[in-house]
């Protein structure tokens, strides 16, 4: 396990560097000069040259790359072209909205999807088993923002139970307000996420039910629930955890849509604004931090799988 961790950490670091390079190249492929964000229409030559110098796009590409890497090594993500504020502190502020939103939705989705998914497989022949799998079919066919809008309409506009959108100006200092602002978005993401999660849990449960080890455990005298808990969950969890990792990563990055629906000042809306304003440092910074988190989640998912299933530890990393 120790050697595996070392090896996997090395792969993690390599992937991060590779992702940074890919991002650098991608953003330089964008048409137009990044300095355009600083200039007004009809700027003269001198103004353009000054803006290019300020942004650094007058340097040759290899010097830009060198600066990019050395800044990165010092955790300096640069300053926004639009507001002039450093990017990293802004990302941290935004994360105080996006992280609780993502983690709470993720946990709620697990709480909903795991029991319902198991039930829908165990009771596939009953009406409610069928109903559950039909509902999850519907759930994967709708965009998350539609559920959000419907919830706003019913819960916030019709019954006025919760705020329709926005986040308190003071952030988490107004804890009650922040909490209330996040309830609807969390429920929205959790509902849509649990629909797809339920399908994976359901098929993992079917696999477990047909497995020899479950029949053997029953033959050795374990009751059905005992066999399921001692052997089924441990075995069934392995494929589900890698799906969970992917789901968590895509929720984190997909928060952009839900943040727009509920007008939340999170990482996603920062990225959207950055894209609309062609604010390179902002887009680059948000994507770098998101990539880091996605890679970390993948890392954790791999390690947890190995902890649960000793058989995986024998195989070579990543293959």
């Amino acid at each position: 396990m120790g050697r595996y961790l070392l090896r996997r950490t090395f792969v993690l670091a390599l992937s991060l560097i590779a992702a940074g390079l890919v991002l650098f190249v991608l953003l330089r492929l964008l048409p137009g000069d990044p300095s355009a964000a600083l200039l007004s229409v009809g700027a003269d030559e001198a103004q353009i040259a000054a803006a290019r110098e300020q942004v650094g796009s007058d340097l040759p590409i290899w010097m830009q790359l060198g600066k990019f890497l050395s800044d990165l090594a010092r955790f300096d993500l640069g300053k926004s072209f639009v507001s002039g504020a450093p990017v990293l502190p802004e990302i941290m502020t935004r994360l105080s909205v996006t992280l609780p939103l993502t983690v709470a939705s993720f946990l709620l989705a697990i709480v909903i999807a795991v029991p319902l998914g198991i039930v829908s497989a165990l009771r596939a022949d009953r009406w409610y088993g069928g109903l559950l799998s039909a509902v999850s079919q519907l759930g994967i066919a709708v965009p998350v923002f539609w559920i959000g809008i419907l919830l706003i309409w019913i819960v916030a506009v019709k019954f006025r139970l919760l705020p329709a959108s926005g986040f308190p100006m003071k952030g988490w200092e107004d804890a009650a307000g922040a909490f209330r602002a996040l309830i609807l978005p969390v429920v929205t993401i959790a509902l849509v996420m649990s629909a797809s999660l339920m399908r994976y849990v359901r098929s993992a449960t079917f696999d477990v039910l047909g497995a020899d080890y479950l029949r053997n455990a029953r033959a050795l005298g374990a009751s059905f629930p005992q066999a399921l808990i001692r052997h089924g969950i441990r075995n069934g969890a392995v494929p589900v955890i890698s799906i969970l990792g992917i789901e968590l990563a895509s929720t984190l990055l997909g928060a952009v849509v839900v943040e727009r629906v509920f007008a939340l000042p999170g990482l996603g809306s920062m990225l959207l604004l950055g894209i609309q304003q062609r604010d390179y440092p902002t887009v680059q910074g948000v994507l770098l931090v998101s990539t880091l988190m996605v890679l970390l989640i993948g890392f954790l998912a791999d390690v947890i799988q190995r902890l649960i299933d000793p058989r995986l530890r024998e195989t070579v990393a990543g293959r």
């Binding site: 890919v22 137009g32 992917i246 990055l253 997909g254 894209i275 990539t291 890679l295 993948g298």
Partner: peptide, 24 residues
């Protein structure tokens, strides 16, 4: 294979946003 794994970790929507940003 490694590049594809990284790309797949990003949701379709995010990659699509970047491509839209890259076009005029």
């Amino acid at each position: 294979a490694a590049t594809l794994d990284i790309l797949i970790a990003f949701p379709t929507l995010l990659l699509a946003m970047l491509v839209v940003a890259a076009s005029d």
